[in-house]
Amino acid sequence: MQAQIRLRNALLTLVTYLIAAAFLFPLVWMFMAAFKTEAQAFATPPVFVFTPVLENFGHALGSYFPALRNSLVAAVGSTVLAFILGLPAAFALAVYPTRRAQGVLTWMLSTKFMPAVGVIVPLFLIFRNLHLLDTLPGLILMYTTMNLPLVVWMMHSYMTEIPYAIYEAAKVDGASVGQEFFGIALPLSTPGMAATALLCLIFAWNEVFFALNLTNSDAAPLSVFISQFKTSEGLFWAQMSAAATLTVLPVLIFGWIAQRQLVRGLSFGAVK
């Protein structure tokens, strides 16, 4: 009986490892190709053992830097803007909830469910008139829209976790709303802010729809850069893999670090 259970457990563990290996394979295959020569990258039968080369990264980096810079500016810029707008709102909703607070929160969340295709056509026309097409400010504006509801929801949930007695004590001492915000709410929710920022950076970095439709060259971020490889029938696979590896690595590391908060953020606090 005991031996049977142990055997069953060992088998289940084996199955888990096999499924995990299957899921990781496309990624591992891409990482490997990044270190192959172009000939090895599309060779049939596939090459599993090879001497790693670094030249693909050199080639990729040549044309990669403008896109990398654009991705960084758009991700960081939109995260900062979403925090500037979202933190005060989250604070007010958490610490001074009125009858309408829940309604406001729900409404903000509902804007997150607005498909980008429902707004892209007028946005394109407005951006064209305002000369925001293919500019970083334009991209930052849209990524902020995408992340602002997330910032408000996440930070609202972290700020309601601060014991209310702390605010009351401050009020007795005559603290203003501003002092409560900068002196209590912000310092005590730093871990929540870090987690929320990581999520915002990941979402903005990986965004594709606005990037492809509102930029084409000057402000094109990495998603647009990588999509150029879509027709590379066997050509430049190693280079493509090197560029893709550089693109996904920061997000992978951020995501692995923030996995707990990922669950909370992705379900808007419904699952913790």
């Binding site: 990781l24 496309p26 990624l27 594709v208 998603s223 999509s227 490889f229 879509k230 590379s232 995501g255």
Partner: peptide
């Protein structure tokens, strides 16, 4: 978690 973190366009081209 990894495959969820990959940029959709990267997934597509790979």
């Amino acid at each position: 978690i990894s495959s969820f973190l990959i940029m959709p366009v990267v997934t597509a081209v790979v």
